[in-house]
């Protein structure tokens, strides 16, 4: 007969454990799974976006430097291409982070000639699906 019922102390322990976990999660700011997901996505985005600007800057500087060497216009093309390269890097960054942050599609001026779909797997997927259906 005794075995039919779960001993009460354990029930209580369960409850206490649950409470403790919840308060711990709350303290760590992890109470909502969607928040956790958003944070993880933000980290990934930050990692990807930062690289884009650095790469744009570096590429612009290298191209400017080489053109200067070639044309003897030091340092003007270097300066110009650093600006252009950084702009291109920012453009790529914008394309990566726009949709996840604003939840909206890219504004048309940032869309480029569809380089925009880069960094946005969802859009690419939808587009691929449309193309598939179009063929059928």
């Amino acid at each position: 007969m005794k075995n039919d019922q779960r001993p009460e102390p354990l029930d209580e322990l369960d409850e206490r454990l649950r409470d403790a976990r919840q308060s711990q999660n709350r303290r760590a700011g992890l109470d909502k799974p969607e928040e956790r997901l958003a944070r993880r996505q933000a980290f990934r985005l930050a990692g990807r976006a930062g690289v884009e600007i650095v790469a744009g800057f570096g590429f612009g500087a290298a191209v400017g430097w080489l053109l200067d060497e070639w044309l003897g216009t030091w340092p003007w093309l270097l300066l110009l291409f650093i600006l252009l390269g950084t702009a291109a890097g920012m453009m790529n960054t914008l394309r990566v982070v726009w949709k996840p942050i604003t939840g909206e599609d890219l504004p048309h001026w940032a869309r480029g000639g569809h380089l925009s779909k880069l960094g946005d797997p969802d859009a690419a997927r939808e587009k691929a699906k449309e193309a598939d259906e179009g063929k059928k």
């Binding site: 590429f59 890097g89 380089l115």
Partner: peptide, 20 residues
């Protein structure tokens, strides 16, 4: 201006890809 930036952003792709 935009075309120059688009072209550069195309050429930056292998760099950011490998750099990452």
């Amino acid at each position: 201006l935009l075309i120059v930036i688009e072209v550069i952003s195309y050429f930056v792709r292998p760099i950011s890809l490998s750099l990452r």
